[in-house]
């Protein structure tokens, strides 16, 4: 049986018809064209698929599409406003918090969560709270710097 769901995606009301065995990330990527949310594993460990559900970071590969019904979703595509990067995106650009970029959308969505939970997080806090986001390129150093500086910039706006 299919289910018709309605939710807010990056500020826009969205309706979709899904089967129960459809994942939220697959609906977003394959059906709604929001390919900024990545899939890096099958085991809920890499964090590449992180987005915000009702304002909180979650792994969209570990959520059924039907569970999006009635929620408010923000993906990486929803961060920039009128062409201006979100402060966390700008910090990743400024501090070169990426190499290949595959983990980056998840890192930024997690980084915003870290900044929201801790106004000025120190590096140890950032590293602890990044445990669910794996990067195979950078060695994390610049990601930690970017999140620290991005959090400062978020606190200033």
């Amino acid at each position: 049986m299919t289910h018709t769901i309605t939710f807010t995606l990056n500020g826009e009301q969205t309706t979709a018809t899904v089967t129960p065995n459809h994942l939220a990330v697959d609906l977003l990527r394959d059906d709604l064209g929001k390919t900024g949310t990545h899939v890096g594993c099958d085991t809920s460990q890499c964090g590449a698929c992180t987005l915000h559900l009702n304002g909180e970071p979650i792994k969209s590969c570990t959520l059924l599409a039907v569970q999006l019904d009635g929620t408010e979703i923000t993906t990486i595509e929803g961060l920039a406003k009128n062409g201006d990067l979100h402060p966390m995106q700008a910090a990743f650009k400024e501090h070169h918090g990426l190499q290949c970029g595959f983990c980056t959308p998840g890192m930024i969505m997690s980084g915003i969560g870290i900044a929201q939970r801790n106004t000025t997080p120190d590096d140890a806090t950032i590293r602890h709270e990044l445990e669910g986001n794996i990067c195979r390129c950078t060695g994390y150093q610049n990601i930690v710097t970017a999140i620290r500086e991005g959090a400062k910039a978020m606190a200033e706006v």
Binding site: G47, T50, E56, P57, I58
Partner: peptide, 9 residues
């Protein structure tokens, strides 16, 4: 437990 995203669910 796990990481922040796991803890949020």
């Amino acid at each position: 437990i796990g990481d922040p995203m796991v803890r949020n669910r």
